[in-house]
């Protein structure tokens, strides 16, 4: 099996404060992985380093064996906040920019996703509610036929009904060999999706296990496992 993500000895400091230290992580192609950790644990930073928008880290990051930042960006589809666009931009104009600059952008997938998420792309960005904006970001991110999807808290602000609908269907929007890394606080809701779980604690990858392993080894679900790791009920030597 080929690794989609391979991180070796990654350390990152900001203003002399350690954000990530000695991170080593391998994720095989095709998996859906939950990146879990408390606020400020470094989940977003790790994703931003993978996507080459955070700089100055030590260590190596390879996406499909590519370590060069530009090539990595071509392989990764990352949920971005769209703040680079004019607030008055129409969603269709943003779609056009994506279609222009990302060679892997699929117009058909975009139509399917916006239909599924009930987004009217004649609307302007600043007229969207927070939830609709997040849905649009998900639609844009998944419209790319990328090797790796990095979804950073993608369901924030989305109502619970839509959230459940998106989560239950998210798998069908990615190719079989595409890898999806999801960071989210709605652990219970995404748990059923996850093939594997990566927990970030104390600035590093504290554990990386498959959901099956968690069930068979500890006899608990993903959310309980996550809480036990953070709560100290499961000790480091047991991981």
């Amino acid at each position: 099996m080929t690794n989609a993500i391979e991180i070796t000895d990654l350390s990152y400091r900001k203003n002399t404060k350690t954000i990530l230290h000695d991170v080593n992580l391998q994720i095989v192609q095709g998996r859906v992985v939950g990146l879990l950790g408390e606020n400020g644990a470094g989940k977003t930073t790790l994703m931003r380093l993978m996507a080459d928008v955070a700089k100055g880290a030590k260590g190596t990051i390879a996406i499909n064996q590519e370590t060069d930042g530009t090539k990595r960006r071509g392989l990764i589809s990352f949920t971005e906040s769209l703040r680079g666009f004019r607030p008055g931009s129409k969603l269709s104009q943003i779609r056009d920019v994506y279609a222009t600059v990302y060679p892997d952008f699929s117009a058909q997938k975009y139509i399917d996703l916006t239909t599924f998420l009930q987004i009217d792309d004649d609307l302007e960005l600043n007229k969207l509610s927070r939830g609709t904006r997040e849905k649009f970001i998900i639609a844009l991110t998944l419209s790319r036929q990328a090797a790796v999807y990095l979804l950073d808290e993608p369901f924030n602000g989305i109502d619970s009904m839509s959230r459940k609908r998106i989560i239950s269907s998210i798998i069908k929007w990615k190719a079989d060999d595409a890898t999806m890394l999801i960071s989210d606080h709605y652990v219970t809701e995404i748990a059923a999706l996850l093939d594997e779980v990566v927990i970030i604690k104390d600035h590093t990858v504290c554990t990386h296990k498959s959901s099956e392993e968690i069930r068979s080894q500890f006899g608990i679900g993903v959310e309980d496992f996550y809480e036990s790791v953070y709560g100290g009920d499961i000790h480091d030597d047991e991981l």
Partner: peptide
């Protein structure tokens, strides 16, 4: 801006 820096160009 993420919007532009994420684009796969040097």
């Amino acid at each position: 801006s993420d919007t532009y820096r994420l684009m796969p160009a040097s």
